[in-house]
Nucleic acid binder design. Structure first.
Lengths: 231, 231
DNA sequence: AATTATGTTTAGGCAGCCCTAAATAACGCC
DNA sequence: GGCGTTATTTAGGGCTGCCTAAACATAATT
């Protein structure tokens, strides 16, 4: 029984935990450099913070080997992630934000909004399960829907897929994807894949209202999809 | 033309400016001790911060005499106050917060919420003019409805008044006032004033649905009213 | 196995914002 | 008009969270 209830973490600490959580999900332990890159902070500063986080019992740190969240650190990261994603939902659905602008606003608010505020927002929205970019919202008790989806860049010609999630860091990219009709829930058929990292030709939209689009592989790699039965 | 647009002030700086704005409205310049008391910070720390605020051009400081906001400081204070009060409105009217709990939540959010978010909230509410406690919301261009109201403690027996605003710092007090039916907009008749700082007997509520209540002078001094024509 | 490149940590600094203790100025009183 | 009280400021520190430069560990190369 490790209770140790949220001793109120600072904004920066929450940001570090979120970054580590995310990096750890891909490869193994998160490395100093990766964290520094993601948070736009010098590696030396990250090293210093790793020390503090380890002292707080939020991570375990093997020098020169990387860091891992402890159970407590994971819980804290998921709490912040839940706040962030519910805020994103609320901003788009209730306050009319476009999906390319919610990320930055939520990034600020997530450190200031109380648990209660966020839960009231979630209730007002009917306890949403995914944020506007399709990312799953962690539950109150710290569980998350953990899938490993393929990206549109991995889909082969002739395949029919449904868009599940798009990466939300870059606003311009999100605006462009919205223009193309590529958003969570949309169905997409891969018409053709040009060789040598060439463009991927798609049919976007439901039966009857399909439009032809072409995207580069870099963009396609930002779009997570699941198979939908061959065409 | 002193443009110098909001160079993004820190949370603590915004808190100091709000406190100074408030104190300056009563007596003349705000003193170090008053500010320290209100922000629950040591006077020495306030002295230090006064130096910084003066360097930033937000206040003028006459050593040992007190401080005054500059025009720029006043604008910054009013911007924060506007954010705070619109947030309070939104939390009560849309998210169902009770009026004794909005203050603290808004206090946190006001430093993180963007101008845009707050304006969207204001629009959703129909551009409210007062917060849930009756305090006027500064306009976007930095003007405020500036009244000097009397308090219920100054009203004489037989007078009929309308409640305009109640002080919002203490949650328990707000809960009690709500219980008594004393909230902005309520009409109140002063039935009797006991001497020697004794209780003030009131008839609270509109014609037909009046109830008798009694309050001490300390509480009455927290309720701002305007005359409503003799009874 | 030695060298080089890369990634990480330590050392030393700085700014913001807070503290306590001590010095100093202003005020009120006799 | 001096004296004590009270208010204010200065001196000296601490913690968070960032920085650069330099030292060090690990991995990659030849």
């Amino acid at each position: 029984m490790t209770a140790t209830h949220s001793p109120v973490l600072t904004g920066p600490v929450e940001d570090y935990l979120k970054a580590i959580y995310d990096l750890e999900r891909g490869a193994g332990p998160a490395t100093t450099n990766e964290i520094a890159l993601r948070l736009a902070i010098s590696p030396a500063s990250v090293s210093g913070m790793m020390r503090r986080l380890a002292d707080l019992g939020l991570i375990t740190h093997e020098p020169y080997r990387g860091v891992r969240l402890t159970e407590e650190g994971r819980r804290a990261a998921l709490r912040t992630l839940r706040r962030h994603r519910i805020l994103e939902c609320y901003l788009t659905e209730v306050l009319g934000y476009s999906w390319d602008r919610v990320h930055d606003e939520a990034e600020q608010l997530e450190h200031a909004a109380s648990e209660e505020l966020v839960e009231r927002m979630a209730a007002a929205l009917g306890e949403p399960a995914h944020d506007p970019h399709g990312a799953p919202i962690p539950s109150r008790d710290g569980t998350v829907e953990e899938w490993t989806l393929r990206t549109l860049a991995d889909a082969s010609a002739g395949e029919r897929v449904r868009v599940r999630q798009v990466m939300d860091k870059d606003a311009a990219r999100l605006r462009y994807l919205a223009e193309l009709g590529i958003r969570p829930g949309a169905s997409v058929s891969v018409v053709d894949r040009a060789p040598f990292d060439g463009p991927i030709t798609l049919l976007v939209g439901g039966a009857g209202a399909e439009v032809t689009r072409a995207v580069g592989p870099a963009l396609a790699a930002q779009v997570f999809v699941e198979p939908l039965g061959a065409e």
